[in-house]
Nucleic acid binder design. Structure first.
Lengths: 337, 337
DNA sequence: GTGAAAGCGCTAACAG
DNA sequence: CTGTTAGCGCTTTCAC
């Protein structure tokens, strides 16, 4: 263990070295104008010599503000949370806040544990992905007395505030495109909807678009798998086996869509000539695979940035603006469908 | 803002309600056996009625332990950090520690800022990716008096302890494979080595293998780009323009390799018939693209798990075991090379 | 301009 | 088995 050597210096050490009270040290750091020039010089010298760094734990206890904002998301990878956190971080950095990130792994129970842990650490605000939570999570969040933002979908009754887009409408929009362009059976590959309202609504959007176009959303047209390239590939196989005449497939994530596309490449299935494939999220991979994937761009960074703004506004006491912000989405038609 | 309603209850509230001292409440929670049955029952009832949750900020100040471990990595996405954090999390979860994650974006200055911030928050241990740091970062880490683990590469002189593998040897091993199998010019696509020792060593491994096989590591054979699929694709174009007879290319990351492969698909270049491509990291995508990528599997999860173990051991005072752990790597030969 | 005093909610000795 | 006494290092409030 890297040896601590000399103890960390405290406010008191600096004060004693400079021959002033701790308050004067604090003032020198926070409002230097209110300190006499000569005093200020001495304090600054002491500050430098001791290499003083405020203890944020002690500050948090005394001020009842930790300066930490928690963000919860299913996965750390996938760039989804990365972009959201980046946006939120950019929005709150100027106000001295730091971000804490937690991964729920698509489990509402794990989400509850994390909320409990973050609340015990007295975060000043919290962002949760999705609008589906355990009753205890909702209760804790409601009683916490801090700003809470639900993101990445639109809740009917937000716990506090929300920022996202309609996963249902977005999915319906892609599938409408598919139905307009291709005649045959249109399948759906999604990850499990258990505890995942985004996926549930994307699946719902698929079904709605199919019914609009006069086709039945036959359950056998849906393959539910875990969220990975490999699972997407396997699902494509399942669907093709069930419906050899499958003409198009909507995937609840670009990860699944890319997996399905790779499987088509292995099987020599022409995309989109023989089978059209559409994804969701507009991850980097969607634009780079060959052919590039038709998909939906979702405002990841903007969700984070807006959530950060809402949090800052609420902490500052000006809880202005709507409580639910719809950021919309963009249908991106590319070569795969 | 979700309204706090009733104030959060403190230890004292529980104690008063149960008619005991705060210490008895604490004992009821930590060593129930040492509390008289009748007292315990009363305290437990009070605990339930108040819905008491310990304030971890106050606990941290009093005990001088926050129960938080920080992990720094370049990016949140890419699954690298995700796997490392998962491993570390699994290793320390049983001891009541939580993880805090920070993304440096490949900037040593940003790393320094984050180390400073985490140290100010009094984390109990810290994991940093790589062995290259600013002098101030090294000094802070050395003086912090907490376990420090450098990961994902092998330092000559660790700050405290380290766990990883030799990026140099791993890269050399892939490129040896390339040189043994293909005769023509062998290129290299890497991300910038500035502040990134892993990438620097992978590039060095490429050069070493080339020289071993009696070929010159001509600078024009290397393309240095940012780390993305798109950049990998562009780099492939650059290299092909410079060396139309390019026979193989080693990429410092599967992300770059996949990008290069997609570009080959767009250009109708047969892989590996006309051009062989090898990557690094064994990300999910490496196995799924067509043809699957020859690459190096790196022990991501194991790095995290071992780092967690080392941290626990050191915090517990039994700083046993070697200070630098080499976890090795595996060359995975697949269809692309 | 500067300082003293009283906590924040918990833990860590030490007494009984 | 249970309680008392001091803090942890800072902020806050009020006096000088």
């Amino acid at each position: 263990m890297a040896d601590g050597g000399a103890r960390r210096s405290r406010l008191r050490d600096v004060a004693e070295l400079a021959g002033v009270s701790t308050m004067t040290v604090v003032r020198t750091m926070r409002e230097p104008a209110k300190v006499a020039d000569t005093t200020r010089a001495r304090v600054e010298a002491a500050l430098l010599r001791t290499g003083y760094t405020p203890d944020l734990v002690a500050r948090a206890l005394a001020s009842q503000r930790t300066g930490m904002i928690a963000a919860l998301a299913p996965l750390l990878s996938n760039s989804l949370i990365a972009d959201v956190v980046q946006g939120m971080s950019d929005a709150v950095a100027g106000y001295g806040f730091h971000m804490m990130i937690g991964a729920t792994g698509f489990s509402l129970e794990r989400e509850e544990e994390l909320v409990r842990a973050f609340l015990a650490r007295r975060v000043d605000a919290i962002f949760v992905t999705g609008i589906m939570h355990t009753p205890d999570t909702v209760r804790m969040l409601r009683d916490a007395g801090i700003p809470v933002v639900e993101g990445a979908n639109l809740p009917e009754a937000p716990i506090d505030s929300a920022v996202g887009f309609s996963n249902f409408n977005a999915a319906r929009s892609v599938v409408r495109h598919l139905c307009g362009r291709y005649e045959g059976p249109t399948g759906c590959i999604v990850a499990s909807s258990v505890g995942n309202d985004r996926m549930r609504d994307r699946h719902g959007g698929w079904a709605a678009a199919l019914e609009e176009s006069g086709r039945a959303a036959d359950p056998s047209l849906t393959a539910t798998v875990e969220l990975s390239l490999e699972a997407g590939a396997a699902a494509l196989g399942t669907l093709m086996a069930r419906h050899p005449n499958l003409r198009a497939v909507f995937c609840g994530s670009d990860v699944l869509a890319a997996g399905a596309l790779f499987e088509c490449q292995r099987r020599g299935i022409d995309v989109p000539g023989r089978l059209a494939i559409a994804g969701f999220d507009d991850l980097d991979i969607a634009r780079q695979v060959v052919p590039a994937l038709t998909t939906v761009r979702v405002p990841r960074y903007e969700i984070g940035w807006n959530a950060g703004q809402m949090i800052i506004d609420r902490i500052a006491g000006r809880a202005r603006g709507p409580r639910t912000v719809d950021l919309g989405f963009d249908l991106l038609v590319r070569a795969s469908a």
